[in-house]
Design a binder for these strands. Structure first.
Lengths: 359, 359
DNA sequence: GAAATTAATGATAGCGATACCAAAAATGTC
DNA sequence: GACATTTTTGGTATCGCTATCATTAATTTC
């Protein structure tokens, strides 16, 4: 209402000028505590008192100080974000999203590196004992049995991101890996490719299996037979991609398109093709998955599947906060699936009329 | 280090478990006030003290409580991080470092893309008028005259990272690009290489010039003549590296080693070598610069110069915070040079007795 | 080398709210 | 009406951090 001239408090130079709960109390002739009760809609306040306080609040145009509130009351949540060594590009996007959301939700994010190996136990336990409220696990940690077991054992609320097979005790954010792979293969079939090679990912990561399923599904729905020979094993590393691509191109009847389970292996495939004198995409179509930085670094730029990484990490933070701040009762474990996008760049094309001549 | 059992404080049930400034103080053997000073990058703290406190902060994984902080009076700083399109790997590391430090210093980092071109003015001005307190410029923006002029004109405290030639009005973090390049070429000479090719970087970036200087200096100190032909132009992109490498390997008398000004171009050089049937490092030694993720992604892994990118961005945030929060009037503009490391991997070797036969 | 100056640290007192418990007031019971 | 209960209300102690000033240590000055 009225501007109500508040006389500037003398003394320290720190006052902000905004009315405080004490100002309200003085005006209403009650104690600050009572004002707090009114603000928080607690029951045990007589109506007459409540009305007086409310009047004072209106008159001063008082609004509680959020900082003071969270300091005194509910403690600030701290979420742990453990990462191993995903592609650096993945991590940075992931961080941007999660930090952004952490700011919005007013929670603190503790980011820590956790190499897979002997130290993982130590790192995770230190994080737990340092009083973290919940943990977010991006790949590849989201599929680490060891890490998951420690967290689940300690009943730490956890959100796994981009795993193909989330443990029942964890919340999960993911994309439809299977569907995405299927879409890519459909695309290749649509382009006219008949023999389509596939480079599988690290079998320890559940997403690998999902992507392979998608490949098979697309073949099946097009009435194509599944040819064991056209699937090579990979580990998601560039180096493994080199071997896998060699294996596929060495075949009697090599594929005219190769779909690698991630961009690193797709890049390796491009390198192998070039070494063999094959033009990409003229002689060989190569597609990746992830839309990592590498996809646009190399030449030709890769046609690949884009994951909304930042959105996924944002969602992970939000979900975790929901689980932690959510009232008492049922910790509704939720799963969430975000949309992927097929990005066409320069590494795919229709196959030549005749299969390229092997040199 | 050790897990340091933090004893649960007794008393009220309100404690959160998160380490506080007092925990850090106790561990470091100083007063809480001193810890506060370190966090806020204030000046009057002895280096030894600062280091001890930082160690304690790391050990406890401490991050200040925002609520308490804003209650106590400190306003939250907002720093702008403008980026254009450096190598994606570079950016991600840069982000990891700066976001981490931003969390520790409790400043908000506003990350925004600023493509070089017509819009730069718009983007920068928008950022300024949105009330940003300071700006961090990683390459290549750190060398953009246009962007710098706007910022300097508006007297926005700015830290440039990894430029070869920082404007006097800005603080700067860098490594010794010239010395690093010189060290690498010295290494190649030591290996026995005589004809050493060099792929220059984008001429708009001052660091490019520094690296070329280092190349020439190493040659000069070894009493080798400088051969114009052995220097090819590049732009720091993979694609430009493809062309540059082709140019060098096309020479009548091609080099037995190629030193590219960054890893992307070195990776491209490896690809070209392979396409030409050259073994790396058997027939051709290839070295890069930056130690980006790409260096260890491809095969063979690149011998390169490691820049502590994350540390540099961390330092940039810290320095900016110091300039902004530091007491004592005059903003002492500082420059800081961090150490580089020559990392030997699998892409370098002594030259063959005779130059490889061209196919 | 003692005094004057400056830098580095520590001690104390809040910031604006809530938690917890004790005191006071209102209500109910016989 | 005296006593047990239940509601309201107030007092006090934090929450985690920083402002401010006092104190101590390190430098400089003459």
């Amino acid at each position: 209402m009225t501007g109500s001239t508040r006389k500037p408090r003398e003394g320290t130079s720190r006052q902000t000028g905004a009315p405080t709960i004490s100002d309200v109390a003085r005006l209403a002739g009650v104690s600050p505590m009572t004002v707090s009760r009114v603000i928080n809609a607690e029951r045990n306040v007589r109506n007459s008192t409540r009305d007086a306080v409310k009047a004072a609040i209106d008159q001063l145009n008082f609004a509680p100080n959020r900082a003071a509130r969270s300091l005194a009351g509910a403690s600030q949540l701290r979420l742990g974000l453990l990462y191993s060594n995903p592609s650096a590009a993945y991590l940075s996007e992931f961080l941007v999203g999660s930090l952004d959301q952490a700011g919005r939700s007013d929670v603190q994010l503790v980011v820590e590196k956790c190499e897979l190996g002997d130290h993982e136990r130590e790192v995770v336990e230190r994080m737990i004992s340092s009083g973290i409220d919940g943990v977010i696990l991006p790949p590849p940690l989201c599929d680490s049995r060891a890490v998951l077991d420690i967290l689940i054992g300690a009943s730490v609320p956890t959100v796994v991101v981009a795993t193909g097979c989330p443990p029942p005790q964890c919340a999960a954010i993911s994309i439809d890996d299977r569907g995405a792979a299927q879409a890519m293969v459909r695309h290749l079939i649509g382009l006219g490719h008949v023999r389509i090679g596939f480079i599988a990912g690290n079998p320890n990561l559940t997403a690998s299996g999902r992507r392979l399923e998608g490949y098979r599904a697309a073949l099946a729905e097009a009435g194509r037979a599944f040819d064991e020979q056209l699937v090579a094993d990979g580990l998601f590393t560039y180096r493994s991609g080199l071997d896998a691509a060699d294996e596929l191109l060495e075949l009697e009847n090599p594929p005219s398109a190769i779909f690698a389970s991630n961009d690193d292996m797709a890049a390796a495939t491009v390198a192998v093709a070039h070494r063999r004198g094959l033009d990409v995409p003229g002689d060989l179509t190569v597609c990746g998955f992830d839309d990592s930085a590498l996809a646009t670094t190399i030449w030709p730029e890769l046609t690949t599947i884009h994951q909304p990484i930042a959105d996924m990490s944002r969602a992970a933070v939000e979900m975790l906060v929901g689980m932690l701040r959510g009232k008492r009762g049922e910790a509704v474990i939720r799963h969430m699936t975000l949309d992927y996008t097929l990005i066409r760049r320069q590494s795919d094309a229709a196959p030549r009329q005749r299969p390229p001549v092997r040199i």
